[in-house]
């Protein structure tokens, strides 16, 4: 196990989530037929960025609270 605890795993996950997806979207934008489609793809990416950030925040907070409890 390379990442022993929740926080480091989250750290690794966000890279895949944000950057990986961003690159995928970038690739798709180049293939998109129209500007509208490209914009939609970018919107999808932004939404995922937002939700990803929120969820990892929540998970991290939960973990911290759980660990601080005896």
């Amino acid at each position: 196990m390379r990442f022993p605890d929740t926080l480091t795993r989250l750290h690794a996950l966000t890279k895949a989530d944000n950057l990986g997806l961003g690159l995928v979207v970038l690739g798709l934008v180049l293939q998109a037929g129209s500007v509208a489609a490209a914009l939609k793809l970018i919107c999808v990416w932004l939404l995922l960025l937002l939700s990803g950030a929120c969820v990892s925040q929540l998970i991290a907070r939960n973990t911290r609270e759980r660990e601080s409890r005896p």
Partner: peptide, 14 residues
């Protein structure tokens, strides 16, 4: 003012 409340304010309109 937590992140969940923030999301719940930002996300629903979208």
């Amino acid at each position: 003012n937590g992140i969940l409340a923030y999301t719940a304010r930002v996300l629903p309109p979208i």
